[in-house]
Write a protein that binds this DNA or RNA. Structure first.
Lengths: 225, 225
DNA sequence: CCAAAAGTGTTTGCTTTACACCCATGT
DNA sequence: ACATGGGTGTAAAGCAAACACTTTTGG
């Protein structure tokens, strides 16, 4: 990383937009930088990618080291190659976005590196490089994608209730949805299946648990919410 | 390109999937290679990208040299980084897809390099590298995109008739559409505007000409065809 | 028995689909 | 006048949206 400009090809990095959903809030993982450029500022987690590594492998490596989470949902987002995006020189970033569920997150809570923090998507601080653009692109993609692919489940536990799922959809999409219509639509499409058990210990009527139907063809189906 | 492996970063290329629509057929531009690897085989046009150039600039350069077409619709598709995708070593390709209209194509017909040819999308020969995968990805993207963004117009002339537009949609989507419903939907959404003039010299009733409504917000709107 | 949140059906309006006849032009 | 392909409206069905009351639990 020192003799940056001696390479004949642009340097390659990957940057990660990791979304998590906790306490009815959609959040993103940010990294507090310890070195220049943008020292002490916030950026997306990322890393240089070497000759022997694919971008998704590099992402897994970052996820494992920062979160102890090697296996979560990961998808290529876009490649950013503005010539001025990195003050050190020409760096091309292949950005990915990842979704992490509450359950997986709790299971490894202690392993999270202490220079990373979750920020609600409405309270993102100023970001270094072009990471604000990358973040915006990722959020837009997530919002579009949740309408026609079952990615919401990646942000919840294996078992979840309809109100939980609906809260998630509402916080991602940003508008309220009718409870009865929401439930009917998801069941009609075959997204979810009842497990048979219910919540317990709450001071009100228990909610039925559902799971995501993994038999479903991974095709597009519009939810029209 | 000779001391390929001496770089410390993977080499970067861009590959282009250029779609054209001629004679009611959607076609793709392929290049007949004059050198190894895949000598005399067909591939997508592409080029190495240097330190001083962005990917989209490299695409424009290829489009200009192969087609004499510097300004056509261009969009980043996906980044392909399989470690074995190029037999020469580690090469990462940021693929783009482009759409070229009949009119622009005719205007520069003579300038097309003689090692490139149009192939109907149903008659693609075997392709070198991972270009079959890139092509499939591009066609899938175009099919999805035409349903909610006005990209079809990029493949037609400035002025076009409803039957022309419908033929285009049918050849991209691969199924027939009701003539009356198609017309009504496009007019309702505000995609197109009548110009007032009509076709001439045909042996049947003239068709009204329309243009794409460029005032339309570039947002998503589902056509639900 | 009260508070809190979850479960459940029906009606209305809108969007989508299906469908057939007349019209303008050139020969 | 005929052959060719383009233009137009309506009715039926399916889908989405709006809406309120009953149920289960814990305190």
């Amino acid at each position: 990383m020192s003799d940056f400009h001696s390479y004949q090809n642009p340097a390659l990095t990957t940057d990660l937009v990791v979304f998590g959903y906790q306490g009815k809030t959609l959040s993103v993982l940010l990294l507090n930088r310890k070195s220049e450029p943008f020292k002490n500022g916030w950026t997306l987690p990322g890393a240089f990618v070497g000759l022997q590594e694919t971008f998704s492998e590099a992402c897994r490596r970052i996820l494992a080291s920062k979160l102890g989470l090697p296996s979560i949902y990961l998808e290529q987002l876009y490649t950013f190659d503005g010539p001025q995006r990195d003050p050190r020189g020409r760096v091309v970033s292949v950005a990915y976005f990842a979704l992490v569920s509450q359950g997986k997150l709790n299971a490894v809570a202690g392993q999270m590196a202490n220079d990373v923090r979750w920020f609600p998507v409405n309270e993102i601080p100023e970001l270094g490089f072009d990471h604000r653009l990358i973040f915006d692109t990722a959020l837009e993609r997530l919002r579009a994608k949740i309408r026609y692919q079952p990615v919401g489940f990646e942000l919840l536990d294996e078992k979840f209730t309809m109100p939980e799922l609906q809260d998630l959809y509402e916080s991602i999409l940003g508008f309220p949805i009718d409870r009865r219509n929401f439930r009917r639509k998801l069941l009609d499409v075959g997204f979810v299946q009842p497990t048979g058990d219910k919540t317990e210990g709450l001071q009100h009527r228990p909610a039925d648990y559902y799971t995501f139907n993994k038999q479903l063809h991974p095709q597009h189906f519009h939810l029209n919410l």
